[in-house]
Write a protein that binds this DNA or RNA. Structure first.
Lengths: 266, 266
DNA sequence: TTTTCATTGCGTCATTACGACACAATGTAG
DNA sequence: CTACATTGTGTCGTAATGACGCAATGAAAA
């Protein structure tokens, strides 16, 4: 199965043909995964999108599930193929199970433009339930690479998104809402920021996700209270104005907080 | 599809036969729903379970999804069939997508005991990904009813659970963990308690879910602070000791809190 | 009837967490 | 070498929280 989807060296139509014929036997029917891959760059939250091969629209990286492949593994596969990363923070966040979400006509038109004539009963045209995953990755370590079915793979600013295919906008919104909710109870940043970062950078990350301005001093007090970061002796060089201290995450405390939550209410 | 699963009047093997033959054409393959139905009675959190027809084990109510049925609708259908309720709080909480979770051998043995001989390729024996839903229902309004495939349907105390089939224990635990997490940010109780309830009853609900003792006075202060309940002039009659006041939920405030969350952190 | 006692109603008090804001220190840009 | 945006480090008043006290109630025991 992995080989099937990984055959990037195949030409597009050859690849599609292979997928269409082999997929029916190698893939779990009716279920797919879609991944919202978040990165943070230039103080902005970014999402990795794929350009649709025929339309002026973009898509979340997604994929099918091997007959014996765990759904999580499928999402991991999609992620590592698009980003080149091995270790990534990945979390299932919602299932999109409306019958109308995967539109037969949509895919039929695309295949027609590919010059591929298919039967309407083809497995790939049937209804798919999609499991939504979101990933948090370190922007600078990502090497975005497209797949055979898409023109390119690039980061988009969360505030300047292009048109997305099908219900992918809805999926993205749900991922954002989940991320926002988790921010209140869980630490964040280890998977999005570089090893060493400044407090203003961390704050900007929070502000972007929450879409809200935060008080600089209260923010620092609160973060330090969690004890998930430790201040280094170095400061960030080559920046205008006063050089800010660098921080790094205290992995042990960070993981404890991940498991037990930050705000022990009751 | 609804008719298919709803034909309780059919005899068991007749029903199974119908499901097996019709299912392939009427049902979405590879996907199912499992429901954790929570109730609250005698100050204890309860879960509705079905007795397996051949084994000394119990199962979460579950079902398959019609080819054109939204997954949510499928869960609603399962719920209303087991509880007799129309309006119920229902929430998707996790997808269980390990290849090993639906064990072919398990179902094969059961069908053998039914005296039904099937092909190993039968759709129902294949791998299923299950969408977990949990429901909060008012115990006293529920009329538990079994289905054709199970002996009986009864409530079990969350602290005294019997052995569950397959990965249903894992599903239950995940539902509980989700409920526990949501308790910190969302109001709860409207769907679990009767119209009028006492503060100690509400507290016991929280204590059961959190599995933790709470201070009576601080609990009341906090709940009243949320303004989601209003105190009635009546007290609860026929109880030993001092008669406690009755409360009821302020639906408007309650729903506001459901949408916006209780603890506006940042 | 009176007493007992578990339970409820309604607080206090000290500590901590939080929001708003002040001011000095730093280092690049002009 | 001065201006200024930015950072480091606080303070202050208020709100929320945890721990606990005590009187009132009313069924059960004496």
């Amino acid at each position: 199965m992995n080989n099937l989807v990984s055959r990037f060296y195949m030409k597009k139509n050859e690849f599609i043909g292979g997928l269409l014929t082999a997929g029916e036997h190698n893939l779990l029917p009716a279920v797919s995964v879609d991944c919202v891959i978040f990165g943070f760059h230039e103080n902005q939250l970014k999402v990795l999108l794929l350009k649709h091969r025929h339309r002026d629209m973009w898509a979340l990286p997604g994929g099918f599930i091997g007959k014996e492949e765990p759904t999580d593994a499928s999402a991991y596969r999609v992620l590592s193929e698009r980003t080149g990363l091995k270790e990534i923070f990945l979390q299932q966040f919602y299932v999109f199970g409306e019958p109308g979400r995967s539109q037969k006509e949509f895919h039929l038109q695309d295949l027609k433009k590919d010059g591929i004539d298919v039967n309407e009963d083809l497995w790939i045209l049937q209804r798919f339930v999609s499991i939504g995953y979101f990933a948090l990755v370190e922007f600078s370590k990502v090497n975005p690479s497209s797949d055979t079915l898409h023109e390119k793979c690039i980061w988009w600013d969360i505030h300047k998104m292009p048109a997305l295919i099908l219900d992918h906008r809805k999926i993205l919104d749900k991922a954002l809402a989940t991320l926002r909710m988790q921010l209140h109870n869980q630490p964040i940043g280890y998977n999005l920021l570089p090893e060493k970062f400044t407090m203003p950078e961390l704050q900007k990350l929070y502000e972007t996700i929450l879409d809200k301005k935060l008080d600089r001093r209260n923010f620092q007090r609160k973060i330090l209270g969690y004890q998930i970061v430790k201040r280094l002796t170095e400061t960030k060089k080559g920046v205008p104005h006063k050089a800010p201290y660098l921080f790094s995450f205290d992995l042990k405390k960070y993981n404890d907080a991940l498991n037990e939550g930050l705000n022990e209410v009751w």
